[in-house]
Design a protein around this nucleic acid. Structure first.
Lengths: 245, 245
DNA sequence: GTTAACTGGATCGTATACGATTTCGTACCT
DNA sequence: AGGTACGAAATCGTATACGATCCAGTTAAC
């Protein structure tokens, strides 16, 4: 053992170097933030999928930080519902079972519907055309089967619709919902083939409703049903494939 | 490598004593949880109201723990939106300005409406009578002016209606909404006198809708409007008193 | 007299240290 | 052979240490 009784610190200088340089490109640099972003990204892109065991020490070593900032990141993710955490046990990536998917979709249908309705009066022609162009690209995706791109465009499309939502809370909830959904999708990629076409058509309907200045109630209902329809399609599909397997 | 800086520790034994005893009554004991509960409670009951500066070290000393668990608690509260946090600056209790109140109420109207509608089919006669009894007590509160009790009963009433919501996410969001609202209310106690009577009447209407098995849409609308009406009453009231001052 | 640089204190951020708890494998007892 | 008890490894929980950063008040320079 031997080594150092005086300062008790060894790598402390590193901390200064790393934090001090503010690596130019990380606007909000902070190990805690780094850990948060890193773990969240890994969950979203599927590297850490479904029930994955998140060992604090391992993550810390991977990111070359100490456990303290990692713990903070984990706490934040816990509060956001992306992971579950048990005292003296550890953290695991949440959102495994199908009912989770169901609940998340249902919640999102409500929140997103509201967000879209609230945004609607503030949406200009510019955004409408932009959304329409995205939807056009989605239609193209249908021919040369490309579900990944389709899903990504789908987010873009809806993002255009709800980003003008004047209520930041609701907007925040929408984002969280999408995050959860991403995490779930990454692990068990579910994509219902037939649904995509209806989806594109419903997008166009939704755009027309907004364009013609329909009352917020109809818009909310349309947006909500749009997502609910996807959920129902998924359930049916899951049922049938379960039999097939 | 093994570093070992002599002892470098003094009060470490205390940790064992405190954590080890598991003070019998704290089922989920953990300093982090303790800090979370404590701070949240202080925010809810108004001790730490509106923009209050949360100094980590001070809180840690108050609770007789180190800063680490406090930081974790703060992170959780941050993710829940109860406080805001800036790097190298610190944390402050969130939710000061009136637009915050507005947004929170709007969000809650949507979420709570949905939660109530989803619960409705699962509500039995037992709960209906229970809710009706609570509403009766609220009516009594009207005569001997008691806004605090009224508010508390109001939560109880709605809790009966939405606790059966089968979607845990939505239920969680409802609870968070109430928490935020509590925090705001504690700082700037706002209670619109005239509104209370309508509120009690609307509660009864809502009960009848549920009782007669009205379609979920009407129930959702009723629940949503009930809260929205409170918001509108508040806005009018705030406007008029602002003039009066 | 006004502004800029300095300085000290408060507070934040994170690394390290080490006790506590859980987990799992193995040896021992029945 | 099967189950239990002991022990070691892994991991969590939190205290402490100390650099970095921010802030306010003070002094120096113009």
């Amino acid at each position: 053992m031997t080594v150092r009784a005086g300062t008790g610190h060894v790598g402390t200088g590193v901390q200064a170097a790393a934090a001090g340089t503010t690596v130019a490109g990380n606007p909000q640099s902070s190990k805690s933030q780094l850990a948060y972003d890193a773990v969240k990204a890994k969950i979203s892109d599927g590297s850490y999928g479904a029930g994955f065991r998140l060992v604090l020490g391992r993550i810390a070593k991977e990111l070359d930080v100490s456990v303290v900032p990692v713990r903070e990141a984990i706490r934040r993710l816990e509060a956001e519902g992306l992971i579950t955490f048990e005292r003296n046990i550890g953290a695991t990536v949440a959102g495994i079972d199908p009912t989770e998917y169901l609940h998340t979709m249902q919640t999102l249908s409500i929140i997103e519907g509201a967000a879209t309705a609230l945004s609607a009066p503030l949406i200009t022609d510019v955004e409408i055309t932009k959304a329409r162009r995205i939807n056009e690209q989605m239609r193209e995706c249908l021919s040369h089967f490309d579900p990944v791109r389709f899903t990504s465009l789908n987010l873009e499309f809806h993002a255009v619709l709800f980003t003008h939502c004047p209520n930041p809370h609701i907007l925040d909830l929408v984002h969280r919902g999408w995050n959860r959904l991403n995490a779930i999708r990454a692990s068990t990629f579910n994509y219902v083939p037939g649904r995509a076409q209806e989806s594109v058509a419903e997008h166009e309907e939704l755009l027309q409703l907004i364009e013609t200045g329909a009352d917020v109630d109809s818009i909310e209902r349309a947006a909500r049903n749009h997502r609910a329809a996807t959920l129902i399609a998924y359930l049916k599909h899951a049922e049938s494939t379960a039999e097939g397997e």
